[in-house]
Design a protein around this nucleic acid. Sequence first.
DNA 1: CAGTAACGTGCAAAAACGTGCAGAGTCAAG
DNA 2: CTTGACTCTGCACGTTTTTGCACGTTACTG
Lengths: 258, 258
Amino acid sequence: MLSHERKTHLLSLLDEQGSVVAKDVSRELGLSEDTIRRDLRELARDGRLKRVHGGAVPIAPANAPFPGRIGIATPEKVEIGKRAAAMIEPGHVVFLDGGTTAIQLARHLPRHLDATVITHSPNIAMELLNHQGLEVEIVGGRLLRHSIVTSGAATIAWLGRYRPDICFIGATGLHPDQGVTTGESEEAEVKRAVIEKSGSAVILASSEKFGAVSSFEVARWTNIDGLVVAQAASRKAAELFGHLGCEILSTNQTGSRR
Amino acid sequence: MLSHERKTHLLSLLDEQGSVVAKDVSRELGLSEDTIRRDLRELARDGRLKRVHGGAVPIAPANAPFPGRIGIATPEKVEIGKRAAAMIEPGHVVFLDGGTTAIQLARHLPRHLDATVITHSPNIAMELLNHQGLEVEIVGGRLLRHSIVTSGAATIAWLGRYRPDICFIGATGLHPDQGVTTGESEEAEVKRAVIEKSGSAVILASSEKFGAVSSFEVARWTNIDGLVVAQAASRKAAELFGHLGCEILSTNQTGSRR
DNA sequence: CAGTAACGTGCAAAAACGTGCAGAGTCAAG
DNA sequence: CTTGACTCTGCACGTTTTTGCACGTTACTG
C-alpha cells in the first residue's frame, strides 16, 4: 500500500466519519501505529487535517452545515455499505433506497463501474455524481424532508416504468414474525413498490434494527432475497432470520464473490 | 510488449484503481521493475501522472471536491439569486432550473416561505431541505452529470403534469436577435418544455451571457416575461434587451415588488 | 497523583530508487 | 549480407525512503 493511498484513505475516513483514530486505522490496514502517526503528522503539516491526541479531526470543525452530509456514518453502516456495493456487477440495473446506509453503499461503489442506478433520493444522486461510468436515473415526486427521498402517488406511478435487477432497501424494523417495517407510511409504499418490481430484493440491515417493529409494513420475508449485515452481527442475524429463506450476507462469508 | 502499450496500460490502471504499484505491474506483465519504473518516470515527466514512492497516482489527486459544493458563487450570481428569490410569493408554484445562479436563488428564499418548488436538479432539492415551509417536487429522469439536472424523454413527459405559476431558467446565451440559447441539446428541450407550461418565464441572466449565442434554442424573446440582472449590468441589459417586450428586473429598480 | 495510552525520536532492516552498463534486437546504409 | 548506430531491457551497485521497534517523554484519565 502506497503512502499516498494511506493518506487518501485517512482523509476520506475523516470525511466520512468526522474523525480518525490512529490505532483503529493501523489495525484496519495491518500497519504499525507509527506509520499512521507519521502520515497524520505529515497531513497535519500540510494543513489537510488537525492532529489531536489519539488521531485526527477535520481542519475546519464546523464546516458541515450542508444537509447532504448529515447522517453520521457509523462503522457498521460503512461495513454494510461496502459489502452491498460489492454485490453490484457491471451491467446491472440497481435501485437504491435513501438513507444513511444506502449513502455508504453509493460511496463505496467502484469508481468506474458500468451500471445503472435508479434512486428516489436526491442525496444518493448527488453522491453518485463522481462515478463516471454510472448512469443515474432519478425517480421524481414530492420530496420528504426527513428522509430525503421522493414519495407519493407520482413516485409510485413513475416506479412502474422500472424493472431493476436488484434493489437495496433500508428499513427501521426487522422482525422474524412481523417482517420488514418502516416508520413512514408513504415511504413504506415506495419500498413495497420497488421490491415488487425488482428481480431480487436486499435489505441493508443495521443490527440496531434487529427485532424492532415499526408501524408500516414494507415486505414479508418471503419477498426478501438477502440481508446485508455487519460481520459482528452475522451470528445474531442468522439466529433471528436464518430460517426465513433469505440469504444472510456479510463480509468474508456466504460467498465472498464480488 | 511495446513501451507504448505498457504506458497505456499503466494509465488505464491508474484510471481504474486510482494508483499503480510498480512491483505489482512488473509481476503482472512479467517485466522487471526497472522497466516499469522507467515508464512511470517518463509518464511523470510528460505530466500524465504523479510519481510517488512505490508507484504512481493520478496527476489531479482524486480529491473530488463534493460536486454539490462546487459552482462558484460570484457576487453577481448572488445578487441575481437574491433578486429573483424576492419575486416568489406565498402560495406560488415555482419551477427552478439547475445551475449555479439557481442555487443562489434557492439559498436566498425566505426560510419559512409557504410555496411549492418544482425542480429537476437534485442539487437544488438538497439546497431546499432547510426551508421548512416549502413543498419540494422533484422531476425525475436521467441525470446529466455535467449540469446536475435530469433530462431526456422521461423528464419531458413528467413535466407535462405541472403548470407552474412562474419558472426561473438559466441559459448560456442571451442575444437580441438569436434569443435565449444553451449549450446542451437535452437541457434545451427541458427548458423549452418548462417555459411552455409556465404562467410566466424569467431568465436568470449573468452579464457574461449578454450577446452570446449557444447552439440550442431555449426560447424566443416573445415567450420570455422577465430578465433578472445584476444592478451593475442593468443599463447594458436595457440597451440590448429593453425593446424585446420582457421586463428587465434588478435590485432597486423597475418596482422591487413581484 | 499515579497509571495508562499516545507521542516523538533515533536506529536498523527492508524496500524502492536512480544510474551506469552490457546484451539483445532493430533498422538502414554500405 | 555485414556493419554500425540506436533503442530497449534487465542487472549490479550505491543511495534514499520507508517502516517497525525501542526507549524516554508527554498527555490524558480516574
